[in-house]
């Protein structure tokens, strides 16, 4: 089965938007491979007649009234946690060049 190379780990970190330093990359190569090797014991399990379980409650089509609720928040209050605010808006880096 899969054995992760250094490039694979870098690719995963890239997909997950994680900056890793050199030591972390080396540690993760070893650790992720060890963990994947462990979970690969599932590959040999016979599951032909079984369907995957996506949820365990058996609930279907759970609905609630589609009504707006006024929680009385002030914009300034909600913006308190935002790292960078400009004119009462969340400021991010440029997305489109």
């Amino acid at each position: 089965m899969a054995r992760l190379s250094k490039n694979d780990v870098l690719k995963l970190a890239r997909l997950a938007r994680l900056e890793l330093n050199v030591t972390e990359v080396d540690e993760y190569i070893a650790e992720l491979n060890e963990i994947l090797e462990y979970v690969e014991q599932l590959q040999g399990v016979e599951t032909l007649d079984l369907k995957p379980t996506n949820q365990v409650t058996g609930l279907t089509n759970v609905m609630r009234a589609d009504e707006p609720i006024d929680y009385g928040y002030l914009p300034a209050e909600l913006l308190k946690n935002v790292p960078q605010v400009l004119n009462d808006q969340i400021q991010v880096k440029r997305m489109v060049e």
């Binding site: 995963l12 997909l15 963990i35 599932l42 590959q43 995957p52 996506n54």
Partner: peptide
């Protein structure tokens, strides 16, 4: 560590072998 394992088992080409298999063994 968990984000990367999760990203791997959900990634194209490995999804069926890992994630879907685990969901089936869950059954």
């Amino acid at each position: 560590r968990r984000i990367m394992i999760g990203t791997f088992v959900l990634s194209s080409g490995y999804y069926d072998a890992y994630y879907k298999k685990a969901m089936t063994v869950r059954t």
